[in-house]
Simulated scan of single mutants.
Amino acid sequence: MNSTNIHNIEHNKRNISLGFMPLTDCAPLVIAHELGFFESQGLNVTLKKQYSWATMRDKLHAGVLDAAQFLAPMPIASTLGLSGPAVNVIAPMVLSQNGNGITISMALYEEIKFVHQRHHIDLPISAALLKPVIEARKKASKQTDTKLRFATVYPHSCHYYQLLTWFEQNGVNKDDVDIVIIPPASMVEALQSDDIDGFCVGGPWNAKAVRDGVGVTGATSCDIWPDMPEKVLAMKQSWQEQHPETTKALIIALQQACDWLATVANRFEAARILSRHTYLDLHLSVIAPSLIGSCLVHHQLSPRHIPSYNRFALDGNDTINKPELFHGEWLLSQMVKHQHIPAEVKLEALIDSVFRQDIYQQAFAEHDAFATPTKVTPLKSTKMVP
């Protein structure tokens, strides 16, 4: 594949600040940087690690970040001014599908087994098993607040809506459960200290809870919403309009990275890279499982085989990376359903303006189909700013 026209890039922007969250599915950004895909498109990208989605959002809105890895519903929320000022943020590319898990504490797991008189619990775990626990706690609530408490990472996230779907599909009233917002990297500590009874988060935090013996991963996004967008490339619409060629170059480089991640062997190599201090700074044993289709469940049980646990691309000519309008409409329907969007807001043409498949398609309009590397290539030195 030919590089984006360098002459055009010179009239746009070469030096890019790109925000990412230290999660397993930041892999496309890290691989595009480490394997030189950004550089081959004439870009000098600095990856900037963030620790909360609200901080990532605020820095993108303020122009501190040129572009960022976002949760799929976040550009919709930004554009509508949910949880902050309205800023027109677009998503011209999907970076990944799936990747989340619902993990409960060992104490809750044992309580469920005791209440139901079971030696083991079938997987995926049904939220219906929580109902007698919830009822027992209701009876004790006169003395203290004993509601089950679950955490997600951001109010307008697939995690939040997947958790509510898990409850709803199994007859659990969301009003009987407290839901709090905690940054991804703080989830395991909160579970271990009994501040929460469970969480919905992306990797590697579910696997770490299992490896540490403090949690049981009972369900994944593949069980609840299979193959829906999870992370997207996000930028302000005004920034894209000022730098259209730079945007195309970013998309092309990230597509190369996503396609490189289509094979399991490459994803294992990606796990090794992600384990570095500059990225996730965690052991390979908690990063690699979801990337190779293995869902750790319990420290004494065999993993579940979930081939699409983390999905970045498809083999063949089909793509998951174009931001499909029906996916955006599905996410919007969840936001409406759970009353995150005021009834008076006009939603006509909103998804067309946010999920910009036209920009994605334009990025490849002038280029022939390219062959994705199938072998691990020599790595570039890392340039990363905290």
Rank of each mutant, 00 (worst) to 15 (best):
N2A: 14
N2K: 14
N2S: 14
N5W: 07
N8P: 00
I9N: 04
I9M: 02
R14H: 07
R14K: 11
N15K: 08
G19S: 12
F20H: 03
D25H: 15
L29F: 04
V30G: 10
V30A: 06
A32N: 01
F37L: 06
F38I: 11
F38V: 00
G42M: 03
L43Y: 12
N44R: 13
N44F: 00
T46H: 03
K48G: 06
S52G: 06
S52M: 03
W53D: 12
M56E: 07
D58N: 08
K59D: 15
K59I: 06
K59F: 12
G63P: 05
A67V: 01
F70G: 05
P75S: 07
P75Q: 07
I76Q: 03
L82A: 07
G84D: 09
N88L: 07
A91H: 01
A91E: 11
M93G: 15
V94F: 06
Q97Y: 06
N98P: 10
N100Q: 12
M106R: 09
I112L: 08
Q117V: 03
Q117A: 12
H119A: 00
H120N: 01
H120R: 10
D122V: 02
P124W: 01
I125F: 12
E135V: 04
A136R: 09
K139R: 08
D145W: 09
D145F: 11
T146M: 10
T146S: 13
K147H: 07
L148P: 07
F150Q: 08
F150C: 05
T152F: 10
Y154Q: 14
P155A: 02
Q162P: 01
F167P: 08
F167G: 10
K174M: 15
K174E: 15
V177S: 06
V180R: 09
I182D: 13
M187D: 02
V188F: 08
L191T: 14
D197R: 10
G198Q: 09
C200L: 01
C200R: 00
P204I: 03
A207P: 00
D223P: 01
P226Q: 11
Q237H: 04
Q237K: 12
S238I: 02
P244F: 00
P244A: 11
T247Q: 10
T247L: 01
A253V: 06
Q255F: 02
W260I: 08
A262V: 14
A265F: 02
N266D: 13
N266H: 15
F268M: 09
A271L: 03
L274D: 13
S275R: 02
T278W: 09
Y279E: 14
L280A: 10
V286T: 13
I292T: 11
S294K: 15
L296N: 07
H298E: 05
H299I: 09
H299D: 12
S302G: 00
H305L: 10
N310C: 12
N317V: 04
E324K: 11
L325T: 15
Q334F: 06
H340A: 12
P342G: 15
V345F: 13
L347Y: 09
L347H: 04
E348G: 02
I351Q: 13
F355Y: 02
I359Y: 00
E366H: 09
H367E: 03
D368N: 03
D368P: 08
T372K: 08
T374V: 04
K375L: 10
V376W: 01
T382I: 13
K383Y: 04
M384R: 04
M384D: 01
M384I: 12
